[in-house]
Design a protein around this nucleic acid. Structure first.
Length: 941
RNA sequence: GCCGGGAUGGCGGAAUUGGUAGACGCGCCGGACUCAAAAUCCGGUGCUGGAGACAGUGUGAGGGUUCGAGUCCCUCUCCCGGCACCA
């Protein structure tokens, strides 16, 4: 090119060497304080938060994915003119530190702090635009003291209370186990059969906020629908009836309470099931060794709901009877291992005809099944008089059929039962005396009214959500700031004595909490009466720390409170990014804490008064108060292929994918895999979540060292949309590297053309550029802008993989532009200079180092972050002719190039005259012609 | 078990509201360069039949709605996330 290689010769490295340029770019950002967020600004604020990591040792791909997505959003918004805050910190308390302490004999604190140092360095090498001056570490007293402070406030307000609750107990190690530590009903270390044990714990009254947590989901327009649905179901608001079965025992009148959402089936109750720990069960077991043994058996096993729900349903008759509240009929009381004390009433009514679990139970133990609901008029029983009120024949009949003894003429089958069950909408009551013929709503109304008259029940709204037990019998957590005084009871630690510091130099034994063995920690005096007292040795659930860290980031260094007035500027978080696995617990707890903090007045004075004074005030409140996260992006997991060999006794030895070569057939289909070191075959397993146990993890550090952070980031963004699982592929990583190298090579080859225009300070208008291009060039130029338009749309909807694709398309267009022959070299240089500037800016959030370097080297400017975001030239998109597709009966038959403003009549003419259409018509007239403007013409024959 | 989600070439994925299925990348095949290989560049690539033009077929399975379905509806299968003490 002869455009004048005069004084503007640009010197730059010929080869793309990520290691060199990435260090330089990171240093540049560091010196410029490029990512320091301003606590006040003319610009709109954008608080972009990625879920903080647990410092497990080193970064894994899930982290890289999470933080790359957050960084793309942050950098994009910065260029769009926002005052961006992207903080980072450490979710530093938790079980793995104690496990590591056991394994390596290192105190949890030392292990944690050294992990943090390693991981901070790794995060920095990814080139994240993080404001490190806001870093929080939850295991440090300056963080958790505010958690303790909030605890004491909530305790005094009654929002935290104490009650007993079941935990997994390892009878050999004498320790409480996490659900994760219970494997097949046994303790992970001791192998002992786990038992349920009741211990006192502190609970947060999240149920007091259930109504608001449910209602406010509706205002979260920036949340994925699936997450909101899961939370709604978790909160589980139900409208039902709480009622009682009266009974007489030991000469006393009493009532057995139950709750049901299907009061319309109350006439079908054939037994009642209570939990093993229910007082009635305890009473019945007196002097009954068989029952005592069964209750004992029920105590085996863990407390996890999934285990309880999938275990075999067992029961035993207590021999006790209670009275049906409406008929007075005697109903047997059974103990069921699936009924849990502490959830609801610890007792349930059983209607085997209309509940799947009750049905299975009744079949197993030969309990009566009585149908009381039928589908509309067609109840399947002719005259409606016969029903299965007899005893089901029980086990043995595989199809579940069992003929009742009550003279019914229709066999009782699974199919029949399914018709009876679940027909809330179309069902009507039968065999229910005065309620016969009533539908669901009227039956419930009328039954509830009758129960109320007898004083035996009433309608009740209930939530599935339970209060949040926050006590943990562990060491590595935030100490619960309570002092147990023999005279004053549970006394919260006064503000001036906070924080209750967790001693960091301890030995972990795996049996019980070290704190409970440290008199220096727990011996204290009562702040109220001054007498000797004992400090609480339980710590808090680590979900507590992660429930408010987003707020603390707004007020780094604040020593006077949990947050200060800066919280009002920054909250709520504009964009939250994290794994879908947190869809319920963490996100619900954080929403709950936000409301707690709001009601404590932490987000400004208006908060509390507005709650009291009603709706008008609501608009005056800062937007921050109700919900913490305006937009939520739930990213998918990172998965990778697995390989193994069968070892001795069929034990699988997992082999890391990095050590395996895959063999393919001539079409590229995998036919086998071999271990590189010995050349012998290995078995190809499934593609699974990267994990230590399957040895299929890819270390991000290795990728960064080999290809650079930009390649790692680009691949991870390109390989899948953020919300889907991402399959790791070494070949894909190389593809990403090749693309970035092509970008570099293009810059190097054209550095002078681009540089000349920059150095002359020529600002050729886009219009000038377009006019000067020939048709071929203009097509290529349009392709580039079409790609940009799509990319800008995709950024809006958080689909970043196609933004990466767009960058590739734009580079291709620029390469094509280069080889087009033209006499107007000036215009061509302008087109390429403009185009490459678009490419660099569009690519910069994904691959920030290479783009920053080239932006500077080619003379576009000093700092690509302060460049404006590229916008589409509408003029470049204009086309005179467009391609329409021709269909016959919806089937593709050809293509037609027409003027873009061709009218319907003309299009129909053209379509009918189209050769393959004519052939298929064979002289007949078309039935109908559908014209979709700009897209297609469909001829219906 | 319950709640939520997913399934598209050999692979990862694209297709904005129902309108050309397979963009972009990987892999594979062919070619250029090279003594040769690697790297790089160019071309091809859903499947079946055909030399070819072309035809048929195709988005987990089965049904339905529609001029037209990857997209909407019903039934089913398999996989993944969560289930309150992993984070």
């Amino acid at each position: 090119m002869s455009t004048g290689r005069t004084n503007a010769e640009i010197k730059m490295q010929q080869d793309y060497k990520p290691k060199n340029i990435e260090v330089v770019a990171q240093q540049y950002w560091k010196e410029k304080l490029a990512f320091r967020a301003e606590d006040q600004s003319e610009k709109p604020k954008y608080y972009c938060l990625s879920m903080f990591p647990y410092p497990s040792g080193k970064l894994h791909m899930g982290h890289v994915r999470n933080y790359t997505i957050g960084d793309v959003l942050s950098r994009y918004h910065r260029m769009k003119g926002f005052n961006v805050m992207q903080p980072m910190g450490w979710d530093a308390f938790g079980l793995p530190a104690e496990n590591a302490a056991l394994a390596n004999n290192v105190p949890p604190a030392a292990w944690t702090y050294s992990n943090i140092d390693v991981m901070r360095t790794q995060l920095q090498s990814l080139g994240l635009g993080v404001d490190w001056s806001r870093e929080v570490t939850t295991c440090k007293p300056d963080y958790y003291r505010w958690e303790q402070w909030l605890f004491t406030r909530l305790f005094q307000e009654g929002l935290i209370y104490k009650k007993t609750s079941s935990v997994n107990w390892d009878p050999v190690d004498h320790t409480v186990l996490a659900n994760e530590q219970v494997i097949d009903g046994r303790g992970w270390r001791s192998g002992a059969l786990v038992e349920k044990r009741d211990i006192p714990m502190y609970f947060m009254r999240i149920t007091q906020y259930a109504e608001e947590l449910l209602a406010d989901l509706d205002q979260l327009e920036g949340w994925p629908e699936q997450v909101k649905t899961m939370q709604r179901n978790w909160i589980g608001k139900s409208y039902g009836v709480r009622f009682a079965f009266p009974y007489q025992l030991d000469g006393k009148q009493d009532k057995l309470w139950v709750y049901t959402t299907r009061a319309d089936t109350i006439m079908g109750v054939t037994f009642v099931a209570v939990a093993a720990e229910h007082p009635l069960a305890t009473r019945a077991a007196q002097g009954n060794p068989a029952l005592t043994a069964f209750i004992e058996e029920c105590k085996h096993g863990g407390v996890a709901e999934a285990d309880i729900a999938t275990m075999e349903k067992k029961g035993m008759d207590t021999g006790l009877k209670v009275a049906h509240p409406l008929t007075g009929e005697q109903v047997p009381v059974w103990i069921g291992n699936y009924v849990l004390m502490g959830y609801g009433e610890g007792a349930v009514m059983a209607v085997p005809a209309h509940d799947e679990r009750d049905f299975g139970f009744a079949k197993k133990y030969g309990l009566p099944i009585k149908q009381v609901i039928a589908k509309g008029r067609d109840n399947g029983f002719g005259d409606g008089s016969g029903y299965g009120d007899g005893t089901a024949s029980g086990a043995g009949s595989e199809d579940g059929s069992g003929t009742g003894s009550g003279g019914i003429d229709t066999p009782f089958t699974i199919v029949r039962w399914q018709e009876w069950y679940g027909s809330k909408v179309v069902g009507v009551c039968i065999n229910s005396g005065k309620y016969d013929g009533l539908g669901y709503t009227s039956a419930v109304d009328s039954i509830a009214a009758d129960l109320a008259v007898k004083g035996l029940g009433e309608k009740k709204v209930q939530f599935r959500l339970r209060d949040w037990g926050i006590s943990r019998q562990r060491y590595w957590g935030c100490p619960i700031p309570i002092i147990h005084c023999p005279h004053c009871g549970d006394v919260p630690v006064p503000d001036e004595q906070l924080p209750v510091v967790l001693p960091e130099n301890v030995t972990i034994t795996g049996a019980g909490s070290p704190l409970a063995k440290m008199p220096a920690f727990y011996e204290t005096i009562c702040p109220q009466c001054g007498g000797t007292a004992k400090r609480e040795t339980d710590t808090m659930d680590t979900f507590v720390e992660s429930s408010w860290y987003y707020a603390r980031y707004t007020s780094p260094g604040c020593a006077t409170g949990l947050v200060d007035e800066r919280a009002q500027y920054w909250l709520p978080v504009d964009q939250y990014v994290g794994g879908i696995e947190h869809a319920i617990l963490h996100l619900l707890y954080a929403r709950f804490f936000n409301k707690l903090m709001r009601d404590e007045g932490l987000f400004g004075e208006t908060a509390l008064t507005s709650v009291l004074q009603g709706k008008e005030e609501r608009t005056l409140r800062p937007k921050s108060v109700d919900e913490p996260f305006t937009n939520l992006l739930t990213q998918g997991m990172v998965i990778a292929p697995t390989f193994f060999r069968e070892g001795a006794a069929g034990k699988k030895l997992w082999i890391n994918p990095a050590e395996v070569d895959i063999e393919t057939d001539s079409r590229g289909r995998p036919i086998g895999a071999k271990l590189r070191s010995d050349g012998q075959p290995v078995v190809i397993g499934g593609t699974e979540k990267m994990s230590k146990s399957k040895n299929n993890g890819v270390d991000p550090q290795v990728i960064i060292d080999q290809y650079g952070a930009d390649t790692a980031r680009f691949f991870i963004i390109f390989a899948a949309p953020p919300e889907q699982t991402l399959e790791w592929s070494d070949a894909g990583v190389e593809g990403a590297f090749r693309f970035l190298r092509r970008v570099w090579n293009f810059a190097y080859s054209n550095k002078n053309e681009i540089g000349v225009y920059r150095s002359r300070g020529k600002q050729e208008s886009d219009e000038y550029c377009l006019k000067g291009l020939n048709n071929e060039q203009r097509d290529v130029y349009r392709e580039m802008h079409v790609a940009l338009k799509q990319a800008n749309f995709d950024l809006q909807r958080l689909q970043f993989n196609t933004v990466a694709s767009a960058c590739m398309k734009i580079l291709k267009a620029l390469e094509q532009q280069m080889v087009i022959v033209t006499s107007d070299m000036n215009t061509k240089a302008v087109a390429i200079t403009n185009g490459f500037s678009i490419l660099l800016r569009l690519l910069s959030p994904i691959a920030p180092h290479i783009t920053q370097t080239l932006w500077q080297e080619l003379g576009y400017g000093d700092d690509i972050l302060s460049a404006p975001w590229p916008e589409v030239e509408e003029a470049a998109l204009v086309q005179d002719e467009i391609d329409l597709i021709i269909q016959v009966n919806g089937k593709l038959r050809g293509k037609l190039r027409v003027a873009k403003d061709a009218d319907h009549a003309m299009l129909e003419q053209l379509a009918l005259a189209y050769p393959s259409v004519e052939k298929l018509l064979a002289g007949q007239a078309a039935k109908k012609i559908i014209v979709v403007p700009g897209r297609l013409i469909n001829v219906v024959i």
